[in-house]
Design a protein around this nucleic acid. Structure first.
Length: 585
RNA sequence: GCGCCCGUAGCUCAGCUGGAUAGAGCGUUGGCCUCCGGAGCCAAAGGUCAGAGGUUCGAAUCCUCUCGGGCGCGCCA
C-alpha cells in the first residue's frame, strides 16, 4: 500500500513538473509514512513541506496542487491536507482487509521479499576462541547474528553464515598444555596446576578422553617436565611459566604427539560449541579455520601485498603496518621480533579473503570490547585496495544477567562462568533467543533470568506465544462445536470486519512486510521483537472485546480468517527470531 | 589523556533515520468473564527527552560544547 501511494504521488509530481509548476530538474524523495493518529488517516506524506522551498510556494498551496494532480485510485477513500501541509491518505477498509487474503495465500512466505535480489552476503558471528564452552556473552552474539542472517535471508539475500575458528595461536597452546597436564594427573603424576592454565572442569573431560583413546602414550614423569621451569605465580611470572610449560610439552612429546593432544582438545571443544549452537537453533554454512588460512599462505600473501604497496616498515626487529596513514591511531605489528605473525596479520588475510570470495558485503558481529579493532582492520583493507564500505562491523554490547534483582557475577578465571548451555537449561531456548534480541545491539542488555523463566504476561515471549496458542485453541473449540472454517466464505466477506479492534489488527498485519524489510536492512531484529509484542497485544485486546464463534457464518468465517492470518504472522515472525510458536502451552 | 557506545516516566526500554499532542511493558491505583484458555483485557496517575548553544517551516532525532555511565587503547587472541 505504501509503495502504491508513493507511485501515485510520483505521478502527481511528474504532472506538476510537466506543467511547469515544479522545476523539471527536481528529483524528489517521496516519503510516505504511517500515521500515528487515526485522525490523520492511514498514511501521510510530507512532500509538500520538503518541496515548498525549491518550488517557491507555500507548503499548503503546493499540497493543493499535488492533490489536484493526484490520479484516481479505487483503494483511496479520501485525501486531505492538514496542519502545515501534510497530505493525509484515508484508505478504504476493504482495501486494507485484503492483507488477510495475502497472508493466508502466502502462508510462510508472507513477509518475505526479493529486495536483496539474491546478492551474496556473509555474516560472521560468535567466532569465540575454541578454548572452552560458550558463555552467556557469546549467546547474545549468537542470537543476534542468527536473527540478522535470517532476516537478510527473508528479504532475498543469499546469506552465508560463517564461524571463524581461532585454531592457531597462544591461547590454543595454553589449552593444549592444560589438557596435557590434567592428563598427566590422570596418569597418576602429582603436579602443581599452573595459575594461567585453563581451570574449567571441561579440561578434565578432554584429558579423560585423551587417556581413554591413547592410554599412557603421552605420559612423562612430572620431574622431567618440571626440570628447568621458571617459578609460577605468585612468586614468578605466570605468563613466562605457562609458555615454558608449552615449550616443554612440544619438546618432550615431539611435534606429532603434541599435535594429537592439541587437536584432541580443539576438536572436543569445537564439537561442543557446534552442538551447543545447534540446540540454540544456530547453524553455520562454514567453519573457517585460522590455521588453514596460514597453511594456504594467505597470511604471507596479505603481508606481501602490504609490503609491495609500501605500507610497511621494519623497526625493533618487527615488521609494522603503517596503519596511521589510513586513520588508525597508531601503527601495528604484523610480524613479531620472534618471526611469528600476529593475530592482526591473520585477520587482515581473513578479511581480504572474505572480500575476494565475492560477497556483495561482509558483516562482522563482534563484542563491543573489540571496537578499537575496527579502524585497523579497515585501514588494512584500504591499504590493500579493497572497498572498505563492503565491510560492516556490528558491535554487540554486553549482556548482564540478573537473578533475584542481583547482578550475576561471572569470573572466567575460576572457570565458574555461566555457560550458554546452563542458560538454555535454565530459561529455555525460546526465552533466551528472544531476550537476547529485545534490545538493539548497541544497547546494554539487562537479562532478567527470573522474568525469562516466568510464565506470565510480564514475559513477552509467553505473551506472544500465548496469542498463537490461543488462536489454535479457538480452532479446536470450533471443531468441538462441530463447525468448520470456511476460508473462502471468510475471504469473501472481509468487509464485515468493521470493528475498531479488527481494523487495528488488520493495519498491524499490513505493516509486517515493511517491518521485516526495515529490521533486515538496518540489522535490527529488536524491531521485530517489539512488533510481535504489539501484534499479540492487538490480538488479545480483540479477543477480549469480541466473540469470534458467532452464529452469523459470514462474520464468523471472516473473523476466523483474520485470526488465522494473525497466527500465521506470529509464527513467521517468531520463526525469524528462532523462537517456536506452540499450538498449546 | 584519546577513541567508540549510551543517557527518554519510579524501573527496563521503543520512538518508523527531521514531522502533527513523545509511546510500550513492569511497578502503583481502580475496574472487567453465566461467554472462544484470566498465561488475558480496560482505565488512571506518572516527562525540563542529562544540560547549554546551533542548523530550519519543524529537533528526542542532525552539528558543537559540558556533565554523567559503560567499554577499549599489547610484538595477547
Amino acid at each position: 500500500m505504501k509503495s502504491r501511494l508513493q507511485s501515485l504521488v510520483a505521478d502527481a509530481l511528474a504532472k506538476l513538473q510537466a506543467d511547469g509548476v515544479l522545476p523539471a530538474d527536481l528529483e524528489p524523495r517521496i516519503q510516505i509514512e504511517r500515521t500515528r493518529d487515526a485522525r490523520h488517516g492511514d498514511f501521510a506524506s510530507n512532500v509538500a513541506l520538503t518541496l515548498a522551498k525549491p518550488a517557491g510556494m507555500n507548503p499548503r498551496g503546493l499540497a493543493e496542487r499535488i492533490l489536484a494532480a493526484l490520479p484516481d485510485a479505487p483503494e483511496v477513500e479520501k485525501v486531505e491536507i492538514a496542519g502545515p501541509g501534510f497530505i493525509n491518505f484515508f484508505i478504504r477498509d476493504a482495501a486494507l482487509a485484503d492483507v488477510v487474503r495475502h497472508v493466508l495465500e502466502q502462508g510462510e512466505a508472507f513477509g518475505r521479499s526479493d529486495l536483496g535480489a539474491g546478492k551474496r552476503v556473509q555474516v560472521e558471528f560468535v567466532s569465540a576462541n575454541p578454548t572452552g564452552p560458550l558463555h552467556v556473552g557469546h549467546g547474545r552474539g549468537a542470537a543476534y547474528g542468527a536473527a540478522v542472517a535470517d532476516l537478510l535471508d527473508a528479504v532475498g539475500y543469499a546469506v552465508h553464515r560463517e564461524y571463524y575458528v581461532n585454531d592457531a595461536g597462544r591461547q590454543m597452546d595454553i589449552l593444549a598444555a592444560s589438557v596435557w597436564l590434567r592428563y598427566l594427573e590422570l596418569c597418576g603424576e602429582e603436579l602443581p596446576f599452573p595459575a594461567n592454565a585453563y581451570q574449567g572442569d571441561y579440561v578434565w573431560d578432554i584429558a579423560a578422553a585423551l587417556h581413554r583413546e591413547h592410554g599412557e602414550r603421552f605420559r612423562k614423569a612430572w620431574a622431567e617436565v618440571a626440570e628447568g621451569l621458571p617459578a609460577d605465580a605468585p612468586e614468578g611470572d605466570k605468563e613466562q611459566y605457562i609458555d615454558a610449560v608449552i615449550d616443554k610439552a612440544r619438546t618432550l612429546l615431539g611435534a606429532d604427539d603434541y599435535r594429537i593432544v592439541f587437536d584432541t582438545a580443539l576438536n572436543y571443544i569445537l564439537a561442543d560449541i557446534r552442538d551447543d549452537l545447534e540446540q540454540f537453533g544456530v547453524v553455520y554454512d562454514e567453519w573457517y579455520s585460522e590455521r588453514r588460512l596460514t597453511e594456504n599462505g594467505l597470511v604471507d600473501q596479505a603481508i606481501d601485498r602490504l609490503r609491495a604497496a609500501g605500507h610497511t616498515y621494519e623497526q625493533d626487529g618487527a615488521l609494522w603496518f603503517r596503519s596511521t596513514d589510513f586513520g588508525d591511531e597508531k601503527d601495528r605489528v604484523l610480524v613479531r621480533e620472534n618471526g611469528q605473525t600476529t593475530y592482526f596479520a591473520s585477520d587482515i588475510a581473513y578479511h581480504m579473503d572474505k572480500l575476494e570470495r565475492g560477497f556483495e558485503w561482509v558483516i562482522d558481529i563482534w563484542g563491543a570490547d573489540h571496537h578499537g579493532y575496527v579502524p585497523r582492520v579497515k585501514a588494512a583493507l584500504q591499504a590493500l585496495g579493497e572497498d572498505v564500505n563492503r565491510l560492516h562491523v556490528l558491535l554487540v554490547q554486553f549482556a548482564i544477567l540478573y537473578r533475584g534483582g542481583q547482578k550475576v557475577q561471572m569470573s572466567t578465571r575460576s572457570g565458574e562462568f555461566v555457560t550458554l548451555r546452563q542458560l538454555r537449561k535454565e530459561v529455555g531456548t525460546d526465552a533466551a533467543r528472544f531476550f537476547y534480541v529485545m534490545r538493539k545491539c548497541e544497547q546494554h542488555l539487562d537479562f532478567d533470568l527470573d522474568l525469562a523463566k516466568s510464565q506470565s504476561a510480564d514475559n513477552p515471549v509467553y505473551y506472544i506465544q500465548y496469542a498463537h496458542a490461543r488462536v489454535c485453541s479457538v480452532f479446536r473449540q470450533l471443531a468441538e462445536k462441530g463447525l468448520g472454517w470456511d476460508r473462502d466464505t471468510g475471504l469473501a466477506h472481509l468487509d464485515r470486519l468493521t470493528e475498531d479492534h479488527e481494523q487495528a489488527l488488520i493495519t498491524r498485519l499490513d505493516r509486517y512486510p515493511e517491518l521485516i524489510e526495515a529490521a533486515a536492512t538496518q540489522h535490527e531484529p529488536h524491531q521485530l521483537a517489539h512488533y510481535l509484542r504489539e501484534l499479540a497485544n492487538d490480538f488479545h485486546t480483540y479477543y477480549n472485546a469480541h466473540q469470534f464463534l458467532v452464529d452469523d457464518p459470514e462474520l464468523r468465517n471472516a473473523r476466523l480468517a483474520l485470526i488465522a492470518a494473525t497466527r500465521q504472522v506470529i509464527a513467521n515472525g517468531l520463526g525469524l527470531l528462532g523462537v517456536s510458536a506452540p499450538d498449546k502451552m
